Simulated assay, not measured.
Amino acid sequence: MTSRKLVEFYLQEICRLNSVLHVVIEVNPCALYQANKAGYQGKAKAPSYYHGLHGIPILLKDNIGTKDKLNTIDLLGLVVPQDAIILWKASL
């Protein structure tokens, strides 16, 4: 499974379910580009390649700033200098 195929699957699921669930406000217009880039980085083992969840699509709450073309409600119009850092703890 490539990053692109996984993103395509989730984009199809968003299209199929969001008219009922109304939970996704916006889809990143760069999602497929980023998936292709992640796949290339993974194959090339590029220095910017991250192990673990690199290339796995995620759904973000609308108040998390991202440095790309994705808008958020709370941050609409605000240009952030970098992606927000999200700390998480995996439960074992």
Rank of each mutant, 00 (worst) to 15 (best):
I56F: 02
E13Y: 02
S3Y: 02
V24W: 03
N28A: 00
E26S: 08
S48T: 15
A31W: 03
V23I: 15
K89F: 07
F9N: 10
T2Q: 01
L76Y: 15
E8M: 09
A90Q: 12
Y50H: 13
K69H: 13
D74Q: 11
A44E: 15
V24S: 04
K5W: 00
L21W: 09
T2C: 01
L17C: 10
H22G: 05
A31E: 03
G39M: 02
Y33Q: 12
L53P: 04
I85P: 02
V80G: 01
D74H: 14
L11S: 00
C15A: 14
N36E: 15
S19P: 10
V80C: 01
K5P: 00
I73H: 13
Q41R: 15
L11E: 07
A90D: 10
L78Q: 14
Y10A: 03
W88K: 15
I58M: 11
Y49E: 11
M1A: 11
G77P: 05
G39H: 04
L70R: 08
A35K: 03
K45L: 10
P47A: 01
S3G: 05
G42Q: 06
K45V: 05
F9G: 01
L87T: 14
L70D: 03
A84S: 15
A90S: 09
G77Y: 09
L21F: 10
L21D: 09
Q82E: 14
P81R: 02
K67M: 10
K45F: 02
P81A: 05
K89T: 08
H51I: 08
Q12D: 12
L76C: 11
I14V: 15
G42V: 01
I14R: 02
L17V: 09
R16K: 15
H54A: 14
V7Q: 00
H22F: 10
D74V: 08
N28D: 14
V80F: 01
T2N: 10
G39C: 01
V27F: 04
C15H: 13
K5N: 13
G65Q: 08
L60K: 05
A31G: 06
N36I: 01
A38Q: 00
P47W: 03
Q82F: 08
V24M: 02
V80W: 02
R4H: 00
K5V: 05
K67P: 01
